[in-house]
């Protein structure tokens, strides 16, 4: 069964209309199967002020199976892998319901940032630190936010993407790398070559 394109389009329109929600989404390519979501770090947390990008992939059976989500921006959080951004969140796994949407999922990620669940960790090192020494955890998380998530809007992204695509990279990879590198072409190239 092909993906329910109509529903995904409606979801995207809904996110675009609702600016107040604080989450945005950008489609990669034409198929509506790959997107990059963006959410703001919740206030009163070590993630405050950060902008976090999330890679989203939709299966053909979406919305009857959960979307695949993974942080592009590096995050220090017990339920998010510090190495690859994989997320441990029940609604993205067995607690998914087709009545949930990309918007509610992104908002849930925002909520996850404010309330870590160290008992069901994704990253055991972070979880141990969270349980053992909370101030230290907060400091590290803040440091990571400052280093990786304090990006200004990527200026002139399209031109930079073109540049990288001309060098023979996939468009989607280029965008992801540029975002992760906060718009720095050189750093983006390093990411692409290192990957």
């Amino acid at each position: 069964m092909p993906m329910d394109v109509g529903r995904v389009q409606k979801e995207i329109r809904d996110i675009e209309r609702d600016r107040a929600s604080g989450v945005t989404i950008e489609v990669q390519g034409n198929s509506l199967q790959k997107m990059i979501g963006c959410l703001k770090g919740p206030s009163d947390t070590p993630f405050e002020g950060g902008t976090f990008y999330v890679n989203i992939e939709l299966d053909d059976q979406y919305p009857f199976v959960p979307p695949k989500m993974r942080f592009i921006t590096k995050v220090w959080h017990p339920n998010i892998s510090s190495a690859n951004g994989a997320i441990c969140l029940d609604i993205l796994k067995d607690q998914w319901s087709p009545a949930l949407t990309l918007k509610t999922a992104l908002l849930s990620l925002q909520a996850l940032l404010s309330s870590p669940q160290p008992d069901d960790p994704q990253d055991a090192v972070v979880a141990r630190q969270y349980l053992g020494s909370l101030p230290e955890y907060r400091q590290t998380a803040k440091q990571w936010t400052d280093t990786y998530a304090h990006t200004q809007q990527v200026v002139g992204l399209e031109a930079k993407v073109q540049q990288i695509v001309e060098m023979g990279f996939e468009r989607e990879q280029a965008v992801v790398a540029l975002r992760a590198a906060a718009g720095d072409e050189n750093q983006a190239m390093e990411i692409l070559l290192g990957a």
Binding site: S81, N84, A86, P121, D123, A124
Partner: peptide
């Protein structure tokens, strides 16, 4: 492999 890596620091 994603699932494998996900729990990289095994419990």
């Amino acid at each position: 492999e994603e699932a494998g890596q996900e729990h990289e620091a095994t419990q």
